[in-house]
Simulated assay, not measured.
Amino acid sequence: MCLAIPTRVVELLPDNQALVDLGGVRKAISLELVDDVAVGDYVIIHVGYALTRLDPDEAARTLALMAEAGLDVGGAGACP
């Protein structure tokens, strides 16, 4: 099962790509489906594509709920 998990953009890369960080796990993802993403934004990612930007407060609440439920949001539960 894949989960769409909020991740923070830490670097914008060439070719509409970005480097994201989730609990110390960093991965390059595509920004093809989302406009105007900046460093520090949170995005929902699924199968390597950012699907939408997410409000930072909403991202924090979502990540806290996932951690409370015992999900490893450090990368193991997310799809690359």
Rank of each mutant, 00 (worst) to 15 (best):
M1D: 13
C2G: 10
L3S: 09
P6K: 02
R8T: 08
V9S: 01
V9L: 02
V9E: 03
V10C: 10
E11F: 12
L12F: 12
Q17W: 09
Q17K: 15
A18P: 14
A18M: 04
L19T: 09
L19H: 06
V20G: 02
V20N: 01
V20P: 07
D21M: 07
L22Y: 04
G24S: 07
G24N: 06
G24R: 03
G24W: 11
G24P: 07
R26E: 14
R26L: 04
K27F: 12
I29P: 06
I29E: 03
S30G: 13
L31F: 11
L31D: 03
L31H: 06
L33C: 00
D36H: 15
V39D: 03
I44M: 15
I44H: 04
H46S: 15
H46A: 13
G48V: 13
Y49H: 14
Y49Q: 12
A50T: 05
A50C: 13
A50W: 03
L54H: 05
L54Q: 09
D55S: 13
D55A: 13
D57K: 14
E58H: 12
A59C: 14
A59F: 03
A59D: 05
A60S: 14
A60P: 07
R61K: 14
T62E: 15
T62A: 15
L63P: 03
L65K: 08
M66N: 07
A67Q: 13
A67K: 11
A67H: 11
A67V: 08
E68I: 00
E68C: 00
E68Y: 07
E68N: 00
A69W: 05
A69R: 01
A69P: 02
A69K: 01
A69F: 02
G70K: 01
L71F: 13
G75S: 13
A76G: 00
A76C: 00
G77S: 12
A78Y: 06
A78W: 04
C79W: 14
P80C: 12
